[in-house]
């Protein structure tokens, strides 16, 4: 096992117009910050998008990331989501090969993890799983034995638990 890199979930409320994603991505690349995953979509207020960015790195790096992000004109609000009080989820679509009589075992795994079966074809099935990134890692690990043909995952999206919101 590789040494675990600390990961931080940053939630940013940004203006919802074209170019914002480029500004954020450009900032990360030119300052040498890495991104594990980034999700973005319009919020309850169509003026804003919410970005959930998972960033690997130590505290010093995260501080710089947040301060640099906060400087962008398009950034309205930025939060570091605390692991303990964060609700997070990710969506996975995965196509698994089912030749050699493996269909039954794949479907059994899907059922065990509560994955949905989205498509059944001659030589494969496509499954959908929503859950924590760790759950999805484990699920993928399990399916690798059957043979994954391709997969797509959205990256983590997250909100803080409780009544509080980023708008406050």
């Amino acid at each position: 096992m590789q040494e675990q890199v600390k990961r931080t979930v940053i939630s940013a409320l940004v203006d919802n117009h074209s170019g914002v994603l480029v500004r954020v991505a450009g900032l990360f690349s030119r300052r040498g910050f890495n991104i594990d995953s980034l999700t973005v979509c319009e919020t309850e207020n169509p003026l804003y998008s919410r970005m959930t960015i998972v960033v690997p790195g130590d505290y010093t790096t995260i501080k710089q990331v947040v301060r640099q992000l906060a400087k962008l004109e398009d950034t309205k609000k930025i939060l570091i989501l605390d692991k303990e009080t964060t609700i997070s989820s990710e969506l996975l679509l995965v196509k698994v090969q089912t030749e050699n009589g493996e269909r039954a075992s794949v479907l059994k795994t899907a059922q065990a993890y509560g994955a949905k079966i989205l498509d059944t074809a001659a030589k494969s099935v496509t499954l959908e799983l929503t859950g924590s990134s760790q759950d999805i890692d484990v699920f993928i690990g399990h399916l690798e034995r059957n043979g994954i043909l391709e997969l797509a995952r959205t990256g983590m999206t997250a909100l803080s638990a409780g009544d509080g919101t980023i708008n406050q």
Binding site: T60, Q64, Q68, K71
Partner: peptide, 11 residues
């Protein structure tokens, strides 16, 4: 005046 300058190069 720029918060991002703190601890960027020298702590």
């Amino acid at each position: 005046i720029d918060y991002a300058e703190f601890d960027k190069n020298v702590v």
